[in-house]
Computed example of a mutant assay.
Amino acid sequence: MIMFKTSLRTIGVMTSGGDAPGMNPAIRAVVRTALANGIRVIGIEDGYEGMLNGRFREMGARDVGGILQRGGTILRTARSMEFKTPEGQRKAIRQLSSAGIDAVVIIGGDGSLTGGMKLQEQGVPVIGIPGSIDNDIYGTDMCVGVDTALNTIVDAIDKLRDTASSHNRAFFVETMGRNCGYLAVQAGIICGAEMAIIPEYETPFKEVAEAVEDAYKRGKSHCIIVVAEGAKLNANELAAKLQEMNVGFDTRVTVLGHVQRGGKPTAFDRFLATRFGVKAIEFLLSGQTGVMTALTGRDITPIPLATVVNNRRTLSEEYIKMARILAR
């Protein structure tokens, strides 16, 4: 955590990396809280790519009106390979300086926050807001977008169970999450899946086959297996192998894909994003920089960006144990 003089006149706000439901409420909170404190706000469009190319626009209170319920991000987002280079970072800093931007609020995932730390190290005051449906960011109990994505998954699995029961089928449902199994485990618990297959733990194929066959022998009319996209066992391969083994159920695969990123943010995500946005400006006004807003219990606390990007979030053993017990 770094302290700096609070002579803020203009701040930039941007969204970066993968979009997450709730980014718009976070933008709204940043803009209106800054304006209420006499600070000018510049929206940086298209993430770091837009920062490099000077895609800046001034934002007033009305520019963020009517966006609370909108998914995605009105500032848009993009990934930038150029920004990862020292030359790209120097170019971005020159653009910020030319626009008179004194500090930047960055809403995004671990890659976006890593970029923010690079700016911070070169003298640009930065506050990060964790926005990622994967909930894989260290230091915060919850990221913006997780609750909405999880509700989307639950709704999809509930509907799949209806058709699975009607046709005596086993469904393999692939969720997002990259190398983090949070969404898959949570969905498995909430939806009563027979198993959740995640990157953090290697699941032998034999164990999957036994779980599906056991469900059939117990007279179940369906079987649901949730598979995180980063798991070693691929949903399509699992379904094909089990179909050949004739374990009782016909097998089907549903890859939920990017539908998990879209949709109206839930009440929880709207409120969390708003709290993060307000706190981001409060941290800057108090002279704090180089930190991320984090949900710690019920409080929003500042966590150093260096701590965030240099550590990996681990999945709770309690959740994994719970998923296994309740699937029996």
Score class of each variant (00 low, 15 high):
L160N: 04
M195Q: 15
V185S: 05
N151C: 02
M245H: 11
K241I: 07
R218I: 00
A231W: 01
K159F: 00
H167I: 12
L238S: 08
D162H: 04
G192R: 13
C191N: 13
A193F: 07
A184N: 06
K241V: 09
A164Q: 09
K206W: 01
E194L: 07
N236E: 12
Q243T: 15
A235V: 03
T163W: 00
A239Q: 07
K217L: 14
K220A: 07
N234V: 12
A209R: 15
N179Y: 14
I190E: 01
A187D: 02
R178T: 04
I225V: 15
I189P: 03
I224H: 03
S166D: 09
E244M: 11
A239M: 08
L150Y: 07
R178M: 09
V212D: 10
D162K: 02
G219R: 06
I189K: 08
C191K: 07
A211G: 05
K232S: 14
A170F: 04
N179W: 11
N246T: 10
E210W: 05
I197R: 12
C223R: 09
G219Y: 03
A196R: 07
R161G: 01
T203M: 13
A211V: 13
N234Y: 00
D162A: 12
E194H: 14
S166P: 07
L238K: 12
L242N: 09
C180I: 02
I225E: 01
G219P: 04
F205S: 05
A184D: 02
N236Y: 10
V208T: 09
G248W: 08
E200L: 11
L150C: 02
D158T: 11
C191P: 00
E237M: 11
S221K: 15
E213R: 15
E194C: 14
F249W: 05
L160F: 04
I224P: 02
A170M: 13
A231S: 15
D155F: 03
G230E: 08
E202D: 14
M245G: 01
T175V: 10
